[in-house]
C-alpha cells in the first residue's frame, strides 16, 4: 500500500517501547507482592531446597540457554545465513517449550502434592499470578518465534525482524531474572 518504507531501526525502537511498558507491568506486580508481604508477617515460605529450588534453578538455566541460542540466531541472520538462523530459532523455541513443560510439572506438583492453589492464600495468589503471566509471555514468544522461523525458512523477513524477536525473547528472560530470586528464593523454608 505504501511505496515508502520505514528506515532501519524503527522496529527495534517499537519493540523497546513495548519492553519498557511491559517491564513496568511486571514491576507493578512485584511491588504489590512486596507490599502484601510486608502487610502479612506470617507469609508462608513453602519451598524446599531440593527438589523445589534445584528444579527452579534448572528452569532458569534452560531459559538462559534459550537466550543464548537466540543471540546466535540473530547473529546468523545478520550474516544472512538463513539455514543456521532457522536452526538456532528452533533451538530457542525448544528451550521455551522445555521451560513451559518444566514449569507446568512444577505447578502440578504444587497443586497436587503441596495443596497450594491461587485461592489458598496470598502466597499461592502471588506465585500463580506472577509466574502465570510470565508463562503466558513465554508461550506468546514461542508462537512469535515460530512465525519468524516459518518466514525465515521461506525467505521472508529481514535481519531487523529477527533482532526484534530476539529483543522480546531476552526481555522475557530478563523478567525471570527477578521472578526467580524474589518469588522462589525468598520463599525457601527457613
Amino acid at each position: 500500500m505504501n511505496a515508502l518504507k520505514n528506515p532501519p531501526g524503527v522496529k527495534t525502537t517499537g519493540m523497546w517501547l513495548f519492553v519498557l511498558s511491559d517491564l513496568l507491568t511486571f514491576a507493578t506486580l512485584l511491588v504489590i507482592y512486596t507490599a502484601l508481604r510486608i502487610a502479612n508477617p506470617d507469609w508462608p515460605r513453602p519451598f524446599t531446597l531440593s527438589p523445589a529450588i534445584v528444579y527452579a534453578t534448572i528452569m532458569t538455566v534452560v531459559l538462559l540457554a534459550s537466550s543464548l541460542t537466540m543471540v546466535w540466531a540473530v547473529a546468523a541472520m545478520a550474516e544472512d545465513d538463513r539455514k543456521n538462523t532457522v536452526k538456532w530459532l528452533l533451538a530457542t523455541i525448544a528451550g521455551g517449550i522445555a521451560f513451559i513443560a518444566l514449569h507446568l510439572t512444577e505447578w502440578r506438583h504444587l497443586v497436587l502434592e503441596d495443596k497450594i492453589t491461587a485461592s489458598t492464600g496470598l502466597f499461592g495468589a502471588v506465585f500463580f499470578g506472577v509466574t502465570g503471566l510470565h508463562m503466558l509471555h513465554v508461550a506468546c514468544g514461542a508462537v512469535y518465534l515460530s512465525i519468524l522461523t516459518a518466514g525465515v525458512a521461506r525467505g521472508k523477513f529481514s535481519a531487523e525482524d529477527i533482532e526484534t524477536g530476539g529483543l522480546y525473547w531476552h526481555f522475557v528472560d530478563l523478567v525471570w531474572m527477578f521472578i526467580f530470586p524474589l518469588v522462589y528464593l525468598m520463599a525457601v523454608k527457613p
Binding site: 531476552h170 528472560d173 525468598m186
Partner: peptide, 19 residues
C-alpha cells in the same frame, strides 16, 4: 544481595544479548 545480583544479571542481558 539478590536485588543487586538480579540487577547485574538484567544489565548483562540488556547490554550484551539485547545489544
Amino acid at each position: 544481595l539478590l536485588l543487586v545480583l538480579s540487577l547485574i544479571k538484567a544489565a548483562l542481558i540488556a547490554w550484551w544479548f539485547m545489544h
